[in-house]
Design a protein around this nucleic acid. Sequence first.
DNA 1: TTATCTAATGTTATACCATAACAGTAAAGG
DNA 2: CCTTTACTGTTATGGTATAACATTAGATAA
Lengths: 165, 165
Amino acid sequence: MVTQSHQDGFCCADHSGSANVAAILDSAESRARAQGARLTPVRRRTLEILLQSHGALGAYEILDRLNAEGFGSQPPVAYRALNFLVEHGLAHRIRRLNAFTACAHPGHDHRAAFLICETCNSVTEADAVAVSAALGQAAQVAGFQITRATIEAVGQCRACQVTSA
Amino acid sequence: MVTQSHQDGFCCADHSGSANVAAILDSAESRARAQGARLTPVRRRTLEILLQSHGALGAYEILDRLNAEGFGSQPPVAYRALNFLVEHGLAHRIRRLNAFTACAHPGHDHRAAFLICETCNSVTEADAVAVSAALGQAAQVAGFQITRATIEAVGQCRACQVTSA
DNA sequence: TTATCTAATGTTATACCATAACAGTAAAGG
DNA sequence: CCTTTACTGTTATGGTATAACATTAGATAA
């Protein structure tokens, strides 16, 4: 399971304590509106599920939860909501896991790298400005013009290194 | 199709003219042997298919070709050969494309980034030593210990920029 | 050599991930 | 209001990947 994580709560700090989830959702809504997009109930709820989750969630897991709450039951329901969130910078797709995660810093025009812990399955979003610059440099050597990039690392998060030491 | 590429041959230089394919295969065999691994017929042929291909190939495309030549017909046949090649540094998995490509510089302990042209579907392997260093730096800030990384960029290769200009 | 052990191949079966195409509904704009 | 557009939901299907087990081929040691 891609999503099963933090089984014991020992692994890492809280991700967006539920207190601020609502605030994040509201600001997401404003930003979407400003872009002429609508953060509809399914989309909002999908983002909320991602925000409350540790690690990343697969589309079908999201779908199960949405369906349990009265939303549609078929894959496109989840994929559409998730694609909307990704396109609007509110979530990220983690290709290595075939999964999705809420954006940790929505609104910023940030380049992100993802650090995937293979012990606890947590996914941490790291700043990738320097990485991006280096990648752009490497591409330039090849005369390649980058549109977008995927930067994902697998390893062990701080807490899990300690635990297994 | 993930692999359809270079439809008109205008796009990029030849990738490993068939002359050196045999040499590459032989040296791959030696290196595999040195590691106590065997480059069996399916594995060797799979690598050859990748070497002769432009762009990346999906596992099922490889499977079709293998099967047409008398090898097994079921997915594990292709996946096992491909995983072997990846584990031994003879091929790379391109996650964004759910596909595989022959390693351009087998033997080197190189960090690679992949530049995927969305116009001609070519996949170029670029040196990613600096990118890797920057990524390691970013991870260190988070206390994260990287085991391996995926670095893939989508955009336009040199030839396709010219063409569409 | 032959018995044995291990690695590799092949199969069946199944699970997981993702999208195309179409019908119905709700919101925005004239 | 009525039209237009965007969103939601469905059915159906296609693509990607692996688990589990039977068989065969290679390596090892008696």
